[in-house]
Structures are given as C-alpha cells and as structure tokens.
C-alpha cells in the first residue's frame, strides 16, 4: 500500500467519524432542527512589545488593524493625529483614524527594558494590515512603530517578529529644550499645532544631548538611542 492510499483511508475514516459524531449530536425530535446562527469568524493577534532603549520611555503603544492607508509616509507631512502622538504621546487620534477596523492601546507607558502584551481582535473581516506607533517621550517628536505591515497571510499560530527603527515626525524642531520635552527628562509641552521643522517624516537622527554638544538640551547621554528601538512579535492566535 502506498502512502497516498493510506492517507485516503485515514481521511475517509475521519470523515466517517465526524459524521457519526454529528449524528450523535443531532436532535432526535421529528421537527427539523433550527438553523443555528453562523459562528462569527474571529481574527485575534497578540502583540508583544519590548522597549530596547536605555532611557526612552515609550508612550502607550497604539496597535491598529486596517485594510487600507498607512500611518505615515517617508517624505510626506505627518497627519495631525501622528503629530499629536509624536509630540505628546497621546495616541487617541491615531486610534480614531477612519481607516482603523480594530485597535487597542497599552494601558500605561512602556518603560525601557520592559515588555507588554497587547491583544487586538476583529470579527468577520479579515484584516490585511497591522500598524503600531509609540512616542519616545524624552524627545521633541520622535516615534517608532510599524507602518501598514501585511498580516493577511498569517495563519493561526504563526508569528512575525520585527525590530523597529525610529522616525522624526518633522513637526517640531529638535531643540531638546526642557520646555519642549514632555517626558520625565523635561516635563514640558506636548502637542503644539505649530510646525517649526521640515514638515516631513523621515528617520530620526538620534538625540544630541547636553553631554554631546547641545548646550541647551535637557537630555543627557542617558537619553541617547540607536536603532532599533522596539522589538515586536505579532502572533495570530485566532
């Protein structure tokens, strides 16, 4: 007997068994059984996020599922929603973007060296893309994250791991002055609608700090960072 025949018999047996089980479960009344409502199809993704920096707390992490659009584009102006997240850490406008099908947010700041587990789920619509964003809070307008990554082919139980780089929203000059840094290193202003920088998103050049030649900086050598800044694993669990 070759392998194919063995498989066929196994399949036949399993089909027979499942039909036996089904008949065992079926109603014994003469009335036809009512058609049960279809079970909703659930897509669930667990997202593990680790802050890889030395001393850059990350604002509550926003995770969103979507089928179109992107959170940012290199060389283009940041949306006001992204500007708000990148300057103040407030992710509510990003989570409320019209493209968002489902979303979740970290409940608190993601401290350096720590990991948070987030979970996002959606019923009946197969999500094609996942995005994630968080501010490096001891900066003027640095953020990190995932921009419209394809997850449509991810099977249940499969994972994708990525390490993210950091971006500059381009909406606020990197003065590093105390009054402009919302994180604990400054305690200064968050969002300001004025755009006094290049007004396009690109990769962040890192912070300079007072220890490396920016005399008015509220940041020290401790706040310097390099890429990558987040380690992320996305697992489809349903």
């Amino acid at each position: 007997m070759n392998i194919q025949n063995k498989i066929s018999i196994k399949m036949l047996l399993s089909v027979l068994l499942s039909s036996l089980l089904l008949s065992a479960c079926s109603d014994n009344d003469d009335e036809p059984a009512p058609t049960p409502p279809p079970e909703p199809v659930v897509y669930q993704f667990d997202v593990s996020v680790t802050n890889l920096t030395h001393a850059q707390p990350m604002s509550p992490v926003a995770v969103l599922l979507h089928n179109e659009g992107q959170l940012w584009q290199i060389g283009s102006s940041a949306s006001v929603a992204l500007e708000t997240l990148a300057e103040s850490g407030d992710n509510s406008a990003v989570l409320a973007e019209t493209m968002v099908l489902a979303q979740t947010s970290g409940s608190e700041v993601l401290m350096p060296g720590t990991t948070q587990m987030l979970s996002v789920m959606i019923e009946d619509t197969a999500p094609m893309m996942l995005s994630l964003a968080s501010m490096l809070v001891n900066t003027n307008d640095a953020f990190t994250g995932i921009n419209a990554m394809s997850i449509g082919d991810l099977a249940v139980g499969e994972s994708i791991s990525v390490q993210t780089s950091s971006y500059d929203a381009g909406t606020e000059k990197n003065s590093e002055q105390m009054a402009t840094i919302p994180g604990p290193a400054g305690g200064g202003e968050g969002f300001n609608a004025a755009r006094d920088d290049v007004d396009f998103v690109a990769m962040h050049g890192g912070v300079v700090s007072v220890d490396d030649g920016l005399m008015l900086s509220a940041l020290t050598q401790a706040h310097r960072f390099d890429n990558p800044t987040l380690s992320i694993t996305i697992t489809r669990t349903e």
Partner: peptide
C-alpha cells in the same frame, strides 16, 4: 549642525 546633520542607520530604502 548637530541637530540637523546627524543620522542613524539605515539611511536608504
């Protein structure tokens, strides 16, 4: 200018 001309890798996609 240390606030403008520094960079971190990568520099191109």
């Amino acid at each position: 200018d240390n606030s403008v001309h520094r960079w971190l890798n990568p520099v191109a996609r």
